[in-house]
């Protein structure tokens, strides 16, 4: 059976690449610290020696729109282009081409159906920054095949936090059952408190540092009970109108299980708090 080599849950700040590669005299003061933290986080994936990446993110109205917006979708293509024109324009993110892994996509899709998750699917999927940002931060050589999974944290009505957790648990079962000797890492990106296009956007800190502190504590201790007691689709919006991306971090903890994270770091930036967590549910690679 396959080995779950690591589970990573990370925020995706689309300006990371731009902020840390512009001429040093133009960089924000936190840029060197940000780069150090991201490179240290990258090492938590590298040491897990993964062969395949299951990538969890959310399309930000790039390929999908309100005429046909999937709640949960899996990519099943042999190859994926990444980065849309408006992401290059706004964030300075370059284009990538990622190899897919059709066999694991098919196995995952069937396994999800068997477990009550009737996924939408795509054989021609272009990936957006919710997946390419964590590639840039944790695997910048972009050399591993991926299985992309998209969730709806964006266009109401949204599934519940419990549903994201249960989906993570189902993905874990499927990875564990995959008949292969390969090492699979799951990497998902989301947000802590975040405001976009509202009165609390782009301030010195994220819109709700207290929520961020509690959210990191819940994730790092594997405390799903506290999350399900405290977090609802409705109250996530009170911490910042785009805070629903936290549910993708809940999903990632679902893949790991209710266990302590092996690596936890964060960085208080303008606009948002960054968080970087890694679990090794089956131990660290020898």
């Amino acid at each position: 059976m396959a080995t779950l080599a690591a589970v990573l849950a990370t925020t995706h700040h689309p300006f990371y690449l731009k902020a840390t590669t512009m001429p040093p005299e133009q960089q924000m003061p936190q840029a060197p610290e940000w780069k150090r933290k991201v490179e240290a986080y990258r090492e938590t994936l590298t040491r897990a020696k993964p062969d395949i990446l299951v990538m969890v993110g959310a399309d930000h109205f790039h390929q999908f729109f309100l005429d046909n917006y999937p709640t949960f979708l899996i990519g099943k293509a042999p190859r994926y282009d990444a980065t849309f024109y408006n992401e290059e324009r706004e964030f300075g993110i370059p284009k990538y081409v990622l190899e897919g892994h059709v066999e694991l996509s098919n196995f995952m899709h069937q396994g999800l159906l068997d477990r009550g998750f009737d996924f939408s699917f795509s054989h021609e999927l272009k990936i957006d920054h919710s997946i390419i940002c964590p590639i840039i931060t944790t695997r910048p050589q972009a050399d591993l095949p991926v299985v992309p999974i998209y969730t709806n944290i964006f266009a109401p009505p949204l599934p519940s936090p419990k549903r994201f957790w249960d989906l993570g648990r189902a993905i874990r079962e499927i990875i564990d059952a995959y008949p292969s000797d390969q090492r699979i890492a799951a990497i998902g990106s989301g947000h802590l408190s975040l405001e976009l296009g509202g009165p609390r956007q782009f301030q010195e800190h994220g819109p709700d540092p207290e929520f961020d502190r509690r959210a990191i504590e819940w994730l790092s201790s594997g405390n799903i009970e506290a999350i399900l007691e405290n977090v609802t689709v409705e109250n996530l919006g009170t911490h910042g109108n785009a805070t629903h991306g936290f549910m993708d971090l809940i999903l990632m903890m679902g893949i790991a299980g209710p266990i302590k994270a092996s690596y936890v770091d964060n960085l208080d930036l303008f606009h948002t708090m960054e968080a970087y967590l890694t679990w090794y549910p089956q131990g660290v690679a020898a």
Binding site: F61, N86, E90, A155, L196, A242
Partner: peptide, 12 residues
């Protein structure tokens, strides 16, 4: 109107 669409287009 969706906050992400509004913010992105007027930033552009």
């Amino acid at each position: 109107a969706h906050f992400f669409l509004c913010l992105t287009i007027y930033i552009a």
